[in-house]
Nucleic acid binder design. Structure first.
Lengths: 193, 193
DNA sequence: CGCGGTTGCCTAAATGCATTAGGCAACCAC
DNA sequence: GTGGTTGCCTAATGCATTTAGGCAACCGCG
């Protein structure tokens, strides 16, 4: 009886692929076992639980996405950086919908703190260094960028935008441009009137 | 043997309450049966499937939210309307997290077309009538507003914003104000420079 | 008032996923 | 080669979904 050679890493990668194929919610220990042509119970030597599997896929995806964003950001600043960041994010979601969904998994605080999630926050702040924002405006802006990008990707993916004919690429650049304008024309301490 | 008096409507309402209590993902035909102190199979006279139940909860929540937004919007225009819309949305998600999550359920096209989702789109467009936008900018703006609001609510709910001390209410008004400014200073046909 | 049809909730059973316990064989190091 | 470790297995339990078929409660009609 030849062994399958399972490892946590291989299982996590395969889980990520499975997520892309059938959706993150449909990722199941059973389905993963089937993919390795192995009995379900065998996976429990490597994974603590179904939740454990999902968490690992989330952490993997978070790190992968952070790497992509970092690469896209290299050598760019200002609006260029903003657009690169936005595109890296959106492209990842298009290319790997299941993994993207995985990055939205709610992690418990310690796990989150040790995850690539903190790199995401750092990179968002790095982009804002190209604009003239100080605290607490910078935090507000971080939250706004996160909201817009995640919201757009999430709504686009779920088909909420497909009821109108207007081009999705066009809306995307319109939004990115608008955000750039907004951040550039922001005056520190300003109260919008 | 006294009958329980189940109806699709009561099941849907109870399902919505259950969603708020345990999360939309945890809504299950079994749990609902337990709540009515009835055997699981009994629900299948009223519901086609678990998916059917979830869809009904989604439609119910979508309509309820649309009603709230409509009420909040009554008699308001411009920035007032924008803020009222935003708050109605966010307050609903805070008050009814399970129902809010339900509104994000992916519906098949015909169901979506017959849902209160179209009212949401109409109301968003109504708000933009207070600003000087023409097509296709208006559609871009609809998408941006949807993205920001949904994104913020979604990230706030999932705890993604709780790593920083800055007040969430403050960020929220900052963002709403920024959007108002952005839309007011938008010049038709403009290409942001 | 009672009778008959309809409808509502039931029991029973099949299927699938998650999870644990315990066993045996393959593999690695010596 | 042999002994310990580790990996995958069989077996079993619990819970959710879903379907089939039955009986009793309820409603309208005479």
């Amino acid at each position: 009886m030849v062994r399958a050679g399972l490892t946590v890493e291989r299982l996590t990668r395969a889980g990520a692929e499975l997520a892309d194929e059938v959706g993150f919610d449909q990722v199941t220990v059973s389905a993963l076992a089937r993919r390795f042509d192995v009995k379900v119970a065998s996976l429990y030597s490597h994974l603590k639980s179904s939740q454990d599997l999902k968490t690992r896929i989330a952490l993997f995806s978070l790190a992968e996405l952070a790497d992509r964003v970092a690469a896209a950001l290299a050598g760019r600043a200002g609006r260029d950086a903003l657009a690169a960041f936005a595109d890296a994010y959106r492209d990842y979601a298009k290319e790997h919908p299941g993994r993207y969904a995985a990055t939205r998994l709610r992690l418990d605080p310690e796990t989150a703190a040790a995850s690539a999630g903190v790199r995401h926050a750092q990179m968002t702040r790095a982009i804002l260094r190209g604009y003239d924002l100080t605290e607490p405006d910078q935090t507000h802006a971080v939250r706004m960028l996160g909201s817009v990008f995640h919201g757009y990707v999430s709504l686009e993916t779920s088909g909420s935008f497909s009821h109108t004919a207007v081009d999705l690429e066009e809306s995307w650049s319109w939004i990115v441009d608008s955000l750039d304008t907004l951040l550039r024309t922001w005056t520190p301490g300003r109260t919008p009137s």
